[in-house]
Design a binder for these strands. Sequence first.
DNA 1: CAAAATTCGTAGGCTTATCTAACATTTTTT
DNA 2: AAAAAATGTTAGATAAGCCTACGAATTTTG
Lengths: 169, 169
Amino acid sequence: MDHMSSNLEDYLEVIFSLESVNSEARAKDIADAMGVQRASVTNALQKLSQRGLINYQPYNSVTLTPEGFRTATRIVHRHKVLYDFLHTFLQIRPEVAEDTACKLEHHIDDESLETLTKFARFIMTCPRTGKDWLEAFTRSCNDRGTCTNCPECIKSCLERLDDKCSGQP
Amino acid sequence: MDHMSSNLEDYLEVIFSLESVNSEARAKDIADAMGVQRASVTNALQKLSQRGLINYQPYNSVTLTPEGFRTATRIVHRHKVLYDFLHTFLQIRPEVAEDTACKLEHHIDDESLETLTKFARFIMTCPRTGKDWLEAFTRSCNDRGTCTNCPECIKSCLERLDDKCSGQP
DNA sequence: CAAAATTCGTAGGCTTATCTAACATTTTTT
DNA sequence: AAAAAATGTTAGATAAGCCTACGAATTTTG
């Protein structure tokens, strides 16, 4: 009884979003956002209410409880980390990245998510990688894996290395 | 009726594995591998059979049809790509990586999977990254994000760059 | 070869999540 | 304020998956 289904997580995420944007979450809007019938929403709201995640009174707007807010925030965070990785690093088109992040967010474990965050940060901050390295990856994707201009790339890398480390011992 | 559920994908994967290892897949072994009751297996086998993915005759071993084999191979490939990324790049412990790959494999889209493969290959083959860069990432994880020995790391990187590019124009 | 043990299938029930249809409440319009 | 429209709930059906319990088929063993 303690484990949240992917489905309820999705509802909570939508409520969080609607509350942020519209400052209230109405059942109709939840139904539209989820692409389901209103009856399904009522059903979900009852379950979320039972778990103490939302304040729910029939015929009224829904709001998140403090606990619901914490849970929603955690899910949104997972979503963001995955979306950023897919979009910024793998260069996946926004709609696809959005869609995939929406599915993966329910299944990735905390350790992997945490490490993925660190990995992304490391790529951007390590003098050996960074933005131009990522661009080199994009080029290599378009060139079907053959990275054709290594010398030039390495030259710009060396410049970056010098820049980044001029302040270090 | 055309879309495979995560569940059936898991069954197919287990059958594929048992067929590889034992050269046959018996219902009992499938039940054990999946951690479910035999009745659930019977149910799943009937569905897979209806879809033409397995050859199923009551009281006989199960085998994959050519179509089933193709589908299973695709799923196993997804699993492997995800596992390798989690384990080799993010350094996630084998059991956790295994477990997470098992869940994510049902939800990642083809484009992201394909690009993830390229990304992993690029990290290993680009002169600017490779094995020692990955080790630097691991150290930075243990040091809580502060990469302390940049100068030394950069030195070994430069050596690698020279090595890798000595044959290039 | 027949009894015992193992394996397999069927029947019926539970849960989650969805839908449609009908009914109830609230809001908007006239 | 009454009628119309929009919104929300309830009831009943469906589908996927799982379970237990029991009976059927196959294998193993004495």
